[in-house]
Amino acid sequence: MARRDNDYQRTLINYVVGFLASLALTFCAYVLVSGHILGGITLLLVIGGLALVQMLVQLLFFLHMADESRPRFRLVSFGFMAMILVIVVAGSLWIMYHLNYNMMGMSPSQKDTYMTTQKDKGF
């Protein structure tokens, strides 16, 4: 029974710590944006970083990822998912950015109009 109570205590502390840390991180990000403390790309990087830290906090304290016993199926599947996610999202953004760049910053409809006017000019 004593071990069980210990376990209970530990889990409860986990939840409380996770909750408070998440709240703090959320407020930090909020204040950074609403107070105009940082700007430009630095701000985006910092709040993105804060979101990642909060993700780690919740994975550890709410989803108890560290407590999983071997073979750590959840950790492995999460890692694989994260890898695929980064590839797909970053790859898409990279591809689409270059597409837009090569289209001279035009949207497809602008491009359509542009091509039509060029054609009318006899090109």
């Binding site: 797909v88 949207s107 497809p108 409809s109 359509d112």
Partner: peptide, 17 residues
């Protein structure tokens, strides 16, 4: 769609992903 800011090429990108 090809108006209102839509981007058909994003579809091509996603469907092949």
């Amino acid at each position: 769609t090809s108006e209102m800011g839509g981007n058909p090429m994003m579809y091509v990108n996603l469907i092949w992903a």
